[in-house]
């Protein structure tokens, strides 16, 4: 198994949208290495003839009639918004320069 480099962690942090400091990246690389060392034991018994279990229950889609029911008001939905404008969530720019 390849060692986890600082660049690998930087890539993962980018995917996870967490802006880590150089110090954190170094630290995380060391820790990840040690945790992966401990958890890779799963490979010892995970042979190809075993079916994976993704969920404890045999679950199926649950359907209901598509009827309108009372739900949160606009005001309630926006009550925790970091910023709002014109009865909507106000977010930073998404598409770059206007």
């Amino acid at each position: 198994m390849a060692a986890i480099s600082r660049d690998d962690v930087a890539h993962l942090a980018k995917l996870a949208r967490i802006e880590m400091t150089p110090d954190e990246l170094d630290h995380m690389a060391t820790e990840l290495e040690s945790i992966l060392g401990a958890v890779k034991r799963v490979q010892e018994v995970a042979t190809s003839d075993i079916a994976p279990t993704s969920h404890p229950l045999a679950i199926f889609n649950v359907f209901r009639e598509d009827v309108v029911k009372p739900s949160l008001t606009n005001e309630q939905s926006l009550s925790g918004a970091p910023a709002k404008a014109e009865d909507r969530f106000k977010v930073p720019q998404i598409l770059g320069e206007e």
Partner: peptide, 18 residues
């Protein structure tokens, strides 16, 4: 992440079966 999924998450799900 791709390339590691089977080795880690996939193997863990098999252990769950066991």
């Amino acid at each position: 992440s791709s390339g590691y999924y089977d080795a880690y998450y996939g193997s863990a799900q098999k252990v769950r079966t066991l």
